[in-house]
Design a protein around this nucleic acid. Structure first.
Length: 104
DNA sequence: GCTATGACAAGAA
DNA sequence: CTTCTTGCCATAG
């Protein structure tokens, strides 16, 4: 059983609608702040795309991943906007407003 | 068990 | 700002 993945998935699934979390954030909430890469790997596997909103996970800059292959890089933005998240002219998300602290 | 790879993050030039 | 380098951990072959 993939303990790491299970934990990461659990965290990603807990991300509330209208908020986004960075890989490092998810990794930290998952239990290890060094899982940033593992988080990406876990999301890449994405065994349950319906329960795991991987599109709510962005880089530390609040930008979408450059290799987001969840149907298209533009898809992620559309999904986030659908959650009520705004994008800056730089194509980034305001982590100060939409950044999930994990507290709730 | 080791090597290679990666949807990251932080630092340096 | 772009590009390169290092650090970290787990998965796949």
């Amino acid at each position: 059983m993939a303990n790491s993945f299970e934990r990461i998935y659990a965290v990603v699934k807990k991300i509330p609608r209208g908020t986004v979390a960075s890989y490092g954030q998810v990794a930290l909430l998952a239990g290890n702040p060094r899982w940033a890469r593992v988080v990406g790997y876990a999301l890449h596997a994405n065994p349950d795309p319906e329960g795991i909103p991987c599109y709510r996970v962005v880089t530390k800059d609040g930008r979408t991943s450059p290799a987001f292959a969840f149907g298209g890089a533009d898809i992620q933005r559309a999904l986030l906007e659908a959650d009520g998240i705004e994008f800056t002219e730089d194509g980034r998300v305001d982590m100060a407003k939409y950044g999930w602290t994990g507290l709730g």
